[in-house]
Nucleic acid binder design. Sequence first.
DNA 1: CTGTTAGCGCGTTCAA
DNA 2: TTGAACGCGCTAACAG
Lengths: 339, 339
Amino acid sequence: MEKHKITIHDIARALNIDSSTVSRALNNSSRVTEKTKTKILKKAEELGYQRNVLASNLRKSVTNTIGVVVPRISRHFFSSVIQGVEETAYLAGYNVLICQSLEQLEREKQIVDTLVANRVDGVLISISMETTDYKHMQSLKNNDIPLVFFDRHCGIPDTNNVLIDDFKGGFDATQHLIDEGCRNIIHFSGPQVLEIYKNRLKGYKEALKMNDLPFKAENVISSRLMEHDGKENAKRLLDAGFSFDGIFFANDVAAIGAMKYLTNHGVKIPDDVAIVGFSNEPISRVINPALTTIDQPGIEMGKIATDLLLKHIKKQNGPLKPQTVIMDSNLIERLSSKK
Amino acid sequence: MEKHKITIHDIARALNIDSSTVSRALNNSSRVTEKTKTKILKKAEELGYQRNVLASNLRKSVTNTIGVVVPRISRHFFSSVIQGVEETAYLAGYNVLICQSLEQLEREKQIVDTLVANRVDGVLISISMETTDYKHMQSLKNNDIPLVFFDRHCGIPDTNNVLIDDFKGGFDATQHLIDEGCRNIIHFSGPQVLEIYKNRLKGYKEALKMNDLPFKAENVISSRLMEHDGKENAKRLLDAGFSFDGIFFANDVAAIGAMKYLTNHGVKIPDDVAIVGFSNEPISRVINPALTTIDQPGIEMGKIATDLLLKHIKKQNGPLKPQTVIMDSNLIERLSSKK
DNA sequence: CTGTTAGCGCGTTCAA
DNA sequence: TTGAACGCGCTAACAG
């Protein structure tokens, strides 16, 4: 077997030409005869040549790789986004480096360092819930590596963002419950350090206000996105004795945790309680087929974010201005439980 | 701001020494004075030096990166494995390149090519369900890149594998149902091209045989791991009019798809039907808190597979012999539904 | 212990 | 259109 790796020099020698011509041919340069080009390609094929990407990258100082940082790949929403990222990146000839911060700032910092060290051409990130300052992003800017936030952003101006209209989602969800006749709605929220949960809560409040319903602080339960929290939240529901008539889940994890706890304890939420949830876990409908969901279009978001990032990477006409894309969420009714 | 990237030469020049000494110091070589070492490190810090990993990799022809290929990262089992892989790799100073084949052979081939081109130091793979020949793995061997199969293997000798004892799992699951009094057990299986599903089925058959129960071909329903299949399977269940008294799910997707279909149609599986399933989706317990599961230790498998791979990468004492590790699965009873 | 030299494999100047 | 030469940044060999 071949022990020696075939280089452009090997194929140049075999053809009595210079390696630079080979290089040009392999890069499909217009400055080489069609005839010699085919000759070279044939020889390359014959010798089983494979370009050394490392050397090529070093020379060009470009890696054709983008990094994507998510809190956890096991969250259905994030793996949907990754799906979209990969599709778009693949079509543009880019590799994707997937990293998970596990919601830890320390890991996020280290990941960013690694990405910079590995000279990725751009970064997509959905920040961890511990992330409140953005010093570690600075090294990206210092190295001219474009950055796009998606879903979870940082609320800082002059950044690239692809977001869902969380305020509208929260508003729609709440309005939907009110339309179904609910007057006392529990809201399972997420960590308030994240903009998205703040905005969903704002939407919830606004809808109440618009309908002249009172806002009660005790009706808002925040979780840290752990199933364990769902458990505690479920206990609070039980303690409250189901005095409410509607639930608005701002995230899947809490919803699942809570529902699992209830199921495991043989408790069933009364049929006249309407539920709506932000959810990308298709499975949540198994829990309750009547559940109305606010669908977050993960795959599409991944595509849009990648498109935006690639535009910044290529920046054909000089540097691009930072840009924020706000996507709509979709309220999807399954089987209406009331009405 | 710094436009010019700081190299070891810059810091060498600033200190009136040679760049090779700087290189040694930065690699913590023992062949450099502690004094100059600290001097160099201080200067490096001061100038904001960052090693160019690309150049280093090219020179050493090593990337400190391992590739892991899974069918889909959104499957809970696989993201658990990745979790374990990352933990172990991280401790050993390796990066992890995550790739998903989406169950397509074509994509798997292309991924392997990319990994080879990017000179990863080793590869972990769980093959797609379309994968029946292994020619595309040859380029890994040609390039001396160690390969470890996990979970889904190819049944070829002289390969590295980390597997679950699927036969035992299938046997245990079936025996458990029989112990609960079942006499007519439906088995939701997976694609028979995959060894793991063949073996789970074998375990099922063996348990029936050991208990003098007849094996009926029509009781085995194979899926292609799509939720859509679950739907059809559920229809078959309905058509069968629940003449069975036990179900053994060989995979989560089919189970969830089937249950979702039933839930959406308001059908509830009778309480006297016992269910056991291979499952890492903790959520499947929401469906039925009484569900007994065969837990596949994903995180641990990721760790073990990575350890094995790293051993092959380092091969301190000459090349290692191929090795197969078989892990035990655990039958976990929740709330027993019968008895 | 440190400096000198020589590449890793490729792509891009210059000339010709 | 092609060839010669150089350098991307780093590390390994050999001297001293």
